[in-house]
Amino acid sequence: MSSSAVRVRVARSPRFRDPRPQRRPRYTHRVYTLSTVTLMSIGHALLGLLEAGPRHGYDLKRAFDERFGQDRPLHYGQVYSTMSRLLKNGLVEVDGVESGGGPERKRYAITDAGITDVERWLARPEKPEPYLQSTLYTKVVLALLTGRSAAELLDGQRAEHLRLMRILTDRKRSGDLADQLICDHALFHLEADLRWLELTAARLDQLASEVRA
């Protein structure tokens, strides 16, 4: 809402032309939340990428950007700080360092603990709340990349969503009109998340089978 107001103001000022005027306010809004959520799951995403084989930090950043960073690429700094956290927790190990030194030449590999961590993360449904797309998307992609079932992930997430939706539905049925409206708002968003997730899974399944073929 606020960015839409900003956009109106920008549009009124000829000197302050928005460099990307075609971008719609709601989109901007979503990009913002997307990157926030991404920060929370970068560690798992990088771990998941490492499951396919050891990589250099730079490769990891590129792979991440390719798949998840369409709107906002990772900073190198983010990668290194995350990798060092993972190293400290024993989820990755340094597979080798190429000659010439420098932090960017380190090759990382995932440990068994790291694989278990990814596994657990994928299996754990996200707490249903608005604007989960990015996390869920990351999960679906990683599940497919690592040969896990996106459908199971989906079923688990759906069950989790439904649990909350049931609570909201119950509250709606016993509450007054204001409660109903608020609950409905949440319900619609939750439903939208699920539907988007189903659609994504279906398309990625399709993509995965194309890739495999």
Binding site: R158, L168, T169, E191
Partner: peptide, 20 residues
């Protein structure tokens, strides 16, 4: 529709003819 399913006590998923 999940919103409709939210009126249930419990759900089961059917996928490829398998009910889970």
């Amino acid at each position: 529709e999940t919103r409709v399913a939210a009126y249930s006590d419990r759900e089961i998923i059917v996928r490829d003819g398998r009910a889970r």
